[in-house]
Amino acid sequence: GILMKKTLLSLAMAGTIILTSCGSGQKTAKNEMAFSDSAKSDSAIAYSDSEAYGGAQEAQENIESSQLSYKQSEVKAIDTQMLIYSCDMSIDVLEFDQAVDRIHQLISKYKGFIESEKYSDGGNTSKWQYSDVEKWKNLTTVIRIPSSQYDNFCGEAEAIGDMRRKNASVQNLTTEYSDLKTTLSIYEAKEKRYLDILSELKSEQDAIQVENELTQIEIEIAKIKTRMNNIENDVAYSYIYLTLNEVREYKEQPVIERTDTFGQRLKNTVSRTWDNFLYFLENLLFVIIRLLPYLLLIALIVFVIAKLVKFLAKLSEKRRQKKYQQRAQQAPAVPQPPQFPQENMPGALDGNNELPKDNMQ
């Protein structure tokens, strides 16, 4: 019986082990299948994410490229319709008169005109005649040349002499001119509308008000047209600010060597100093002689003024004393105390200055 129980227990344990191993195998297979499925799903998700990321990146690149192409399409060429050219140049010439004639010939050649001109012969304002060697002539002028001939004129003008300074510039007024045109069209439309309103008005007061508005509009239109005309003229004719300076060719002076001795130079210096001192005294004497009549006249005037002041002071003092005496005479008399003879006064002294005996006793 005991053997039988051990055998059954052994079979039960073996069956339990077999069932457990089968269950774990199935579970492991299921886990492996689940893991493979999750791996596949993860790879699919990763692929889909990478595909989505690639599509997003491609879309972003497309957007950036489209924006770049849009920005590139926004770049426009600079409008060069209203350009004003100007040039400031200074030229030194040896033959001044010939250079001036050449400038006038170039102006006529290129159909320009002189807007302003200032000429100086180099002499000062004193009334003296100077030789041509002592004069330094100068010409400053503003020349207007057609813009189509601007470069040609500047090129030939530079060859007249020695170019010392040149400043060229270009001003673009296209935007301003375009704005003026737009503003002008607005004002003209407004003017037309007011004219239509004015033609339909019957009230005189309303008509006067509309006419005032029309006047202001016409003034603004006139200002805009004036500015537009100035821009058009400046664009059509460029500015040349030209200065011509007369110069002379520099020649080096030869060096003169000293041949005199120290004693000779000292003697010459003392002689020149003494001569200068005598010349100073001579001029001082001449100055005193020239000023002597004026000094005498000034001294005479001072003397007369001093005498007149002294006389007026004395006269004022006399008047003051006279006025004081008159006031003293007009004042009331002051009563005087009674006076008695000395001999009748008791206790009076006699002629010997002795007191009476009775009084002494």
Rank of each mutant, 00 (worst) to 15 (best):
G1R: 10
G1E: 06
L9Q: 15
A12D: 02
G15H: 09
G15Q: 08
G23Q: 06
S24D: 00
G25R: 08
K30V: 06
F35M: 06
A44Q: 12
I45S: 11
I45E: 11
D49L: 10
S50W: 02
S50P: 00
A52F: 09
Y53Q: 09
G54M: 11
A56V: 15
L68Q: 11
S73H: 12
E74K: 14
E74D: 07
Q81T: 13
C87N: 13
D97T: 11
L106E: 02
K109M: 09
G112Q: 03
E115A: 15
E115M: 05
E117Y: 03
G122M: 03
G122I: 04
G123I: 01
G123M: 01
T125K: 08
K135F: 01
K135P: 03
K137Q: 13
T140Q: 12
R144K: 14
R165D: 11
K166D: 04
N172I: 02
Y177Q: 10
Y177N: 08
D179F: 07
K181W: 01
T183S: 14
S185W: 01
I186Q: 12
I186H: 10
K190S: 10
K192S: 12
S199L: 07
Q205H: 11
E211C: 07
E220K: 13
A222I: 04
K225W: 03
T226R: 06
N230E: 14
E232A: 10
V235K: 15
E246I: 02
Q253G: 04
T259F: 06
Q264Y: 05
S271G: 07
R272G: 01
R272D: 05
T273W: 07
Y279T: 11
L281K: 10
N283V: 04
L284K: 11
I288R: 04
I288M: 05
L292Y: 15
L292T: 12
A299Y: 05
L300S: 13
V302K: 09
V302R: 03
R319T: 12
Y324E: 15
Q325N: 09
Q326D: 15
F340Q: 13
Q342T: 14
N344Q: 13
D350K: 04
G351V: 15
N359G: 05
